[in-house]
Design a protein around this nucleic acid. Structure first.
Lengths: 194, 194
DNA sequence: CATCTAATTAGTTAAACATCTAATTAGATG
DNA sequence: CATCTAATTAGATGTTTAACTAATTAGATG
């Protein structure tokens, strides 16, 4: 995540009124007037704050008749909130040989994957491991959720140790787990390779 | 975590210069002039920013001769960064019968713990469970780290299902795990009971 | 198409804030 | 105790921002 996006996120979260809006939306969607009422503020003030929250992507809206409902995207919120705990990692990666060409990528996949698509072994070098993890995770459909069993079964079609692969997908933010179901993260949360 | 502390945290993190300072300190401690040099700013500016970072508790300092080194407290940083993803939970607790007197606490402990200190069963009601978890976790020394084996052994002196207890301690932020070692969190991170 | 509702934009005001220079303080050392 | 180094405080300046009122816009509906 780049610096100015992180700044925008924390600036957005760094205001009592906006934090209270986030707290309200965690309970479920609300429309502007309702928020204004609950907080004892005027509608334009709410618009002002919602604009900042929406700019970060953690809030989105849907219209129903005349009323616009605002929703909290808890996944995005969590991702952005945790980004500061990893700050600098991306730069380190960018410096330290983390650039990768398509040619290199092909080479890595060729080295670790057999002709019939099986993973020979999990690469121990981080960069290579991420390339391999990204390759296999693309089989999942964005937005769809999967049971742990399904995930395990899919992994076993190409690698025996399914627990390791599943754990690494979570660890590197390719997927996340909620209520014991698994779902692909948006690509912008994936580690920066290629 | 209360609202104004969260506001202060995100205000502190909502500035590019301060985020760059956090990124620098993640690599290890630095003194003021070094930070000023790396960021191309004047020392008073760094003092100004460090004051804000220190006020939140995520940065602390140690003196060595004439030079003051600034350290990042990554545990505190992580805790505060993640607090926004749980915002409102505490209020719900505070409303919903979450006040507890010392008398009630004694009663709960008496009900669930035998005379020789064993846990009869894990309470299913959240409030009671937290009371019990807090009681047993106090055996650990603040600041000391423990191997998973040690933790398990201790739990087994009072309850068979050590995995559950260990997991709940982590889940409720009584302890945290790092490099496969366990350590007590500061009490301010514990759930608000008593 | 006139009218209603909810949201947004425009413009104002007071407060907060990031940065700088200059002056001061806190400790260490000869 | 004079002097050095590093950090902090004080004060100034320009920018950002949270809140409001008043005016406008975007859609829905009779």
């Amino acid at each position: 995540m780049q610096l100015d996006k992180m700044v925008a996120f924390h600036k957005a979260a760094g205001d009592p009124t906006r934090l209270r809006i986030i707290a309200l939306l965690r309970q479920g969607p609300l429309h502007g007037q309702a928020i204004a009422g609950k907080l004892g503020l005027r509608p334009p003030t709410i618009t002002h704050h919602l604009k900042k929250l929406r700019d970060t992507g953690m809030v989105y809206s849907r219209r129903d008749k005349n009323t616009i409902y605002f929703y909290l995207d808890e996944k995005k919120l969590t991702f952005m909130a945790e980004a500061v705990t990893r700050i600098g990692d991306e730069q380190v990666k960018a410096d330290k040989e983390w650039q990768i060409t398509e040619k290199e990528e092909r080479q890595i996949l060729q080295n670790f994957i057999t002709v019939d698509g099986k993973l020979k072994q999990m690469p121990s070098q981080l960069k290579k491991r991420v390339v391999v993890l990204a390759y296999y995770v693309k089989a999942f459909q964005p937005g769809k959720t999967y049971e742990e069993k399904e995930v395990n079964e899919y992994i076993r079609t190409f690698f025996e140790d399914y627990a390791t692969v599943r754990r690494e997908w979570i660890m590197h933010h390719f997927m996340y787990r909620e209520n014991n179901r698994y779902e692909l993260n948006p690509q912008e949360m994936w580690p920066v390779v290629v």
